[in-house]
Design a protein around this nucleic acid. Structure first.
Lengths: 200, 200, 200, 200
DNA sequence: TATGAATGAGGATTCATTCAT
DNA sequence: GATGAATGAATCCTCATTCAT
């Protein structure tokens, strides 16, 4: 008996609900510290049902970590590396990134764990790493563009890009205060310095 | 009959050995993922012996995290905030910090987890946070010094200091490659930009 | 989907089976000497299942001790303190009590332990103590009745009642022979003497 | 090198101290609930030392239970079964016994446990049982004497003796109040009734 | 003899996963 | 598909006992 559309929708909602509460739990309690029972309770379903949507705990974890990447791609990669005004583009990019990072506290806490324990979560980490490398690449190209136009000082572009993403994740890590506060905005101009803008 | 000196020394060595392997395990496998059995095997002792040195797993973890702080204080705080040449002092400081961070891969991975799961490790985190605040304070004062001498551009000193420590921990997180490579050295001059040195 | 009636019945049976074998084990091996593994093996279930029915060992123990009290109340308190013929009522009561005590060897052995280690099992003991006090009270009233009718010699009724229940539990303790033997019957008339019946 | 007299005395004292605290612990915490460490701490010695005096925990327990029996024999058997005035002898005996039982709260709690768990402590229990039987025997003979002299009503002497010792241990069990209170004295005359004294 | 570190068997409990209903 | 009872591997920890000092 095939499922009705309503049922399908219901299951999708349920699945998403599980992912949401699981993200929170994995982030705050860690992988081993998160039990299927806790997840099911937070999602208001029986623990047996979790296995209806995910084959095992590991798959749940992987999904929680990797699922949001698609959505993230769109916003994180939304800048033009060959822009005519690279400084302006850089500022826009930083602003966008900062806002995203400020608002994704829980998810990024999770990411930090995967990175920190990359040998344990090697497969999942590997996907994350690829994602990161693509971002580094695109940022590098924008930096290169700025340097060619003599608007940024000469530095190894990839190094700068690496420092930039390091700074982003570092800020997220250091700001345990989960609120998207003004603090984040005050960071923007200072971060810009990292790229070495040339004053005219 | 009190223990002989040789025995005491032996116990100290053993204890340190446990801490060493435990640091490695906690860092790579996480708190829950690290079992006392694994620790004892890595330390080549019986698991019962772990409890001779530490009352329980939690105490072992706390010791692993907090014990190195004293030693770290000495090297991390080794700079003069009221130096006559703040730029030079800043460069020296960055160099020192970078080398420390580059060499403490395992321990810092652990720190990252405590910060990431600060609600879970609230007590331990709290001590870490105090340590961090003291460092921020001292760095801030050096930045202020540089700004007063018109050698650094005007930025909120505490913000810059925060970005600086965020960058340090971020680099450590992003550089899963554990080797103390040349890369780290190449970072130094770029990091300097964060502080906004004024070219004359 | 709620559990079917058959399943519920099955669980009830299983629970009762656990209680039964646990009573036996706690009685003969003591609290600490009784392991969950032994209980589960005696009940022919996995040890994990014991925790499906009882949160922990302590709860299992408490249930084993306190659960039978309700049932016991009915039979142990089944006498009339204001009976017209207190002597006859007393004899009937003794007979009933003796038969109950003779037949509950295992459970009473357990009770003896809780009383003996009352500081260790203080909470459980407290409930038992209340139960005992109620019984003492009712017996006292019957004794008083007999004394008022000049059918029993004058003695402090509560003291006599106390001696009576002490005697009951003492007999149970001394009669390690578990069988409900004729011995018990031979006790009845002798026990009667404790109450000091007046020969006419 | 033989031990000096002083050392020997010291060891004897230490041994007795261990037995004393062990009695208390075994009585209140049970056999399994009592650890060698607890014993050694209560006795203010190292736990290794306990094994200097007793080969293992079981031997310590056995000694704690059986050692006092010799001393007890003297006081408990101190009555004359062929006394000319059996009633008076009986009263004296009861008084003595009551006082002993009132004052040995801890030890008797321990005895109760051995009796209750006689299958577990079968060997130790067996010695206790022999002791008990001897006492029953001697009390029986006194009862018989009384009956022959027509000072006690006719009852199976051994039954009465059994009820008597049951009553003693039962009182001890029921009187969790450890103090040697007046209550015990008030019991004496009532207990006498058990033997069925004939009023003249 | 006294001490206490080392050992590892054994205990309570947790938890992912299976599966009957 | 949803539920939750059943299972048993695996975990932390305790503790009797051994033994070197």
């Amino acid at each position: 008996m095939p499922l009705s559309d309503e049922q399908k929708l219901n299951m999708k909602k349920r699945r998403e609900n599980i992912l949401e509460v699981a993200t929170e739990l994995f982030a705050t309690e860690g992988y081993e510290g998160t039990t299927i029972k806790k997840v099911s309770e937070a999602a208001n379903i029986s623990y047996g049902s979790v296995f209806t949507y995910f084959n095992d705990k590991e798959e749940l974890f992987r999904t929680v970590v990797l699922d949001p990447l698609n959505e993230l791609t769109e916003v994180l990669f939304d800048f033009n590396p060959v822009a005519d005004d690279p400084i302006c583009e850089l500022e826009k990019m930083i602003k966008t990134h900062i806002h995203i990072f400020a608002g994704m506290s829980t998810y990024l806490t999770l990411i930090v764990q995967v990175i920190g324990q990359h040998t344990k979560f090697s497969e999942t980490f590997s996907e994350l790493d690829q994602f990161h490398n693509k971002l580094l690449d695109k940022v590098s190209r924008l930096v290169e563009n700025g340097q060619e136009k003599r608007l940024l000082i000469q530095q190894e572009p990839f190094t700068v890009a690496s420092l930039y993403t390091s700074l982003l994740i570092g800020i997220r890590l250091n700001t345990t205060d989960a609120r998207l506060s003004d603090i984040w905005d005050s960071y923007i101009s200072s971060i810009m310095n990292l790229f070495g803008p040339i004053k005219k």
